[in-house]
Design a protein around this nucleic acid. Structure first.
Lengths: 168, 168
DNA sequence: TCTATATAAATCGCATCCGATTAAATCGCA
DNA sequence: TGCGATTTAATCGGATGCGATTTATATAGA
């Protein structure tokens, strides 16, 4: 009886902003709060592991994103991570200063900066340091289901925010 | 076939930190990244609505938490929100300065600060300003299922981090 | 009573996020 | 060719999160 079968009975289903009727408007009924607090929880759960590597949670995610492909531009990396250069640039400079990545202007287009993992950066991931986190989620077989649901939620939210893909 | 039935076939299930075998270690397979990016997406989706109220995403969540009960201490509010006074105090001072909450030392224990919504703060919630967000999630009947799954995930992660509830 | 300890909030410094702006390079097009 | 528009990072300021410390108050034990 884990995550399957939407209930949707006549009795107070949990909504994005729960109940119009005052009573159900509790923090615990907000999906946004569930995601907000789950994100905090992930950061705290990762902390003991990442502290040993001298990395923050966000820095670790950047390194994973960089492991997929060499010589990504800041913009391309930002598209993967849903961030922009105002957030990424300071993080990338920090990771460069500790030797995990390289940053260089693209000679063919000096506007762009290309980022790659160094061997030291790649070595960080070899041990799969966050493998113990799988058990900590406690989701068991529901793991892939939740992963897909949250991803779908994210994509729907982003789509609702942006205007149109293109129009001309 | 929305969120039900965990696949768990022999072919690359999505894991917390995906595949030991290098190939599946993609950002898109990380549950932590799904939650991380969904949280960013929520903040962006709420922004147009909350901008009109002059509130940030976190400030709005604080107000919802305060609407449940008057005269909460900073510590009690922090337990609900999984935050501590180092984060809450500046936010509460800001909300006080714009007239949405009151802060006062408890006369019976001057160490504690008690926080309540003002009528203006309570009025903010009357229109249920984030109601349009329900549709933006695009989850339909899966909404309550996802809400519960993410909450369970959060609680499992927090439990795995903390030592024991008590011991003496 | 008097003091050591404990507790609650606040403060401080660092690392994100993000809107707005700036600087540099490239592109479009007459 | 030349210049304005566009694109890409970077910069700047405000608002979180959070570990570590500080301040003020309350409690406990000799």
């Amino acid at each position: 009886m884990p995550t399957s079968k939407a209930a949707k009975g006549p009795d107070m289903p949990a909504l994005a902003s729960p109940q119009p009727g005052k009573g159900g408007r509790k923090l615990s009924n907000f999906l946004c709060f569930a995601v907000y607090s789950a994100n905090l929880a992930f950061g705290r759960a990762y902390k003991p592991i990442l502290d040993q590597l001298g990395l923050t949670y966000t820095q670790y995610i950047v390194i994973v994103a960089l492991s997929e492909e060499d010589d990504q531009t800041v913009g391309a990396l930002g598209e993967k991570m849903f961030l922009e250069s105002n957030t990424l640039t300071p993080i990338l400079k920090k990771l460069e200063s500790v030797g995990y990545i390289t940053r260089r202007r693209d000679p063919a287009d000096e506007r762009q900066v290309r980022v790659s993992l160094t061997p030291a950066g790649r070595t960080l991931l070899d041990g799969d340091p966050v493998a113990p986190m799988i058990a900590a989620t406690g989701l068991g077989d529901d793991f892939p289901v939740v992963q897909k649901s949250v991803t779908r939620l994210r994509d729907n939210l982003l789509r609702s925010t942006q205007p149109e893909p293109e129009k001309s």
